[in-house]
Design a protein around this nucleic acid. Structure first.
Lengths: 159, 159
DNA sequence: TCTTTATTTCATAAAAAAATGAATCTATAG
DNA sequence: CTATAGATTCATTTTTTTATGAAATAAAGA
């Protein structure tokens, strides 16, 4: 079978965009290499294989695999296995709304939920005479509450 | 001078709250120990000295110093030097709105600004016939734009 | 001033996170 | 079925981040 001769080197403008993504993603604690993989997909003209991504970024197959897995988990990348073809293809989720939405669902909500449960459990076993503890606990529960209402609004705004 | 016999150990409920803060802050890449320092301040009944914080968390003076510096930079803690008294006192910023607002100003805006500048510079030197690059660049600039409009709305909502 | 206590700095140590690469598993082509 | 390209896993290595502690600095009391 004819080997595809795709571009395996990053262009100047792609590198520049990648750096911006690295900064953006870092705000949410996503590692540099993962942001770079996303960036490559974002810039690409079509789906890319894991191999192509690895070549462009000069990273190992293991690294590419792990990074792509994280991105797929976060909903930032989509994996498609094309029938009648080995390997998988990846594309970037380019909608900012969906990107943030997935991130919120995958990372923020679970944490907020367990946090809330913990706090509510604590409230039930906290002596009522401990006014300070009661008060601090209430403050924090209010944060959770506000955040829970804010997140959908963000999605809406971006939609 | 009489030595103050403040509580140097964390109570059960404080530890629980600290853990919640660790989770929340981690979402934005703030290290555990820094989140814990914030938690201690948040729970406290009044201002605390760096020494008291260090004792409660069993961390070194250097660690406390660096962690507090970061929190102050982020606007998550306030430092006050009480006249006629050695050392400084620290308090937590307990307003969620201000907390997020400061964070946005301190960490997100600068990144977005430099990102935007970079992208605009790139746009000016990008050959117009490179349609793909043009298009991707525009997408990303639109993200910046949306984000720039979203951030104030968040502050407003929390206010 | 000198002394003592609080704080910061920064080189080093410790810990945590991320990348590698070899072994393993999977799936397709032949 | 067998051979092979592709993908994944995971123990190990590398890199990065964070914490420590000793030394330097600052600031207040005597």
């Amino acid at each position: 079978m004819q080997k595809e001769t795709a571009t395996v080197t990053l262009e100047e403008w792609e590198i520049e965009l990648l750096n911006v993504f690295v900064g953006l993603f870092d705000t949410f604690g996503v590692p540099k290499s993962v942001a770079q993989i996303y960036g490559v997909l974002f810039c690409a003209d079509g789906p890319l294989s894991q191999e192509e991504i690895g070549q462009k970024l000069q990273i190992s197959a293991g690294s590419a695999s792990q990074g792509l897995r994280l991105l797929v988990e976060l909903g930032a990348a989509h994996k498609q296995s094309v029938p009648g073809q080995r390997g998988n293809q990846f594309t970037a989720e380019r909608s900012m709304r969906r990107l943030l939405g997935y991130f919120i669902d995958a990372k923020m909500r679970p944490r907020m939920r367990t946090g809330k449960e913990r706090l509510e459990a604590l409230r039930d076993q906290l002596p009522p005479e401990n006014k300070l503890a009661q008060q601090r606990l209430e403050s924090l529960l209010q944060w959770q509450d506000k955040a829970g209402k804010l997140l959908p609004l963000i999605s809406k705004f971006l939609g």
